[in-house]
């Protein structure tokens, strides 16, 4: 495993399209559920233990070599909101482009061919980690961290929140993020033998509903 490759993949400036997505934060800000650093922290904590726990497990499983087509179906089944499924595939396609240019690998080529309009982002992320010589822990960490860093960055733009406060929120969530990543890897290892049903299927109804409402807005800053 190369620690430096992990930094390249986890870098917020890795050009994979994430900057245009708020992870549900824009809808939550508009609804008055995020107003300051404290409510951002609660939002991120909720996201970490639901959507991010699920995507981290999918990414870890893909990194371990679980069949990506099956994982993509599992991701669909775990994402009730059509708007979120569209966003996940869009981000998957964008990550795929960056990954193939960065760490060319036949498994990435095969997945791109199988899903020309994009597989679910965490599945692509797991395979990207694999192509970069990284392991399931790395994939799980990247996915779980994206799950909270995306909303935190978006809220800095949406509310003019002090960027130091937003970063401190992420630091306070770090110990929980460690546990979520470890659980994700454990679930992914079970999926190697027991199939994708061993992966967590946690969802956050308010995030799903918020995503559907957000997709219908005529005026918005973020794509999701």
């Amino acid at each position: 495993m190369s620690r430096a490759a992990l930094l390249v993949l986890a870098d917020g400036r890795f050009p994979a399209g994430g900057h245009a997505h708020s992870g549900g934060a824009e809808a939550a800000v508009k609804a008055g559920r995020i107003t300051d650093a404290a409510s951002l922290e609660e939002f991120c904590r909720g996201r970490l233990h639901t959507g991010a726990a699920m995507t981290a497990a999918l990414a870890a499983a893909a990194a371990l070599g679980v069949d990506p087509t099956g994982l993509d179906r599992a991701a669909d089944a775990r994402t009730p909101s059509p708007a979120l499924r569209v966003a996940a595939r869009k981000l998957g396609r964008q990550l795929m482009r960056a990954a193939r240019a960065t760490w060319p690998h036949p498994e990435l080529d095969a997945l791109a061919q199988r899903f020309p309009k994009g597989a679910h982002q965490p599945v692509v992320l797991g395979l990207t980690a694999r192509a970069a010589g990284l392991g399931p822990e790395d994939a799980a960490y990247c996915s779980a961290y994206e799950g909270v860093s995306g909303p935190a960055t978006a809220v800095v733009r949406l509310l003019g929140l002090d960027p130091f406060d937003a970063t401190a929120v992420l630091a306070r969530l770090a110990p929980e993020l460690d546990r979520v990543a470890q659980d994700a890897v454990d679930a992914a290892r079970r999926a190697m033998t027991d199939g994708v049903d061993a992966l967590p299927a946690r969802s956050a109804p308010l995030l799903e509903i918020g995503a559907e409402v957000h997709a219908g807005w005529p005026v918005r800053l973020f794509a999701s």
């Binding site: 050009p15 994979a16 869009k90 964008q94 482009r97 960056a98």
Partner: peptide, 9 residues
């Protein structure tokens, strides 16, 4: 400029 993926798509 920095992350052109959505435009390329």
């Amino acid at each position: 400029r920095d992350d052109i993926s959505a435009n390329l798509e």
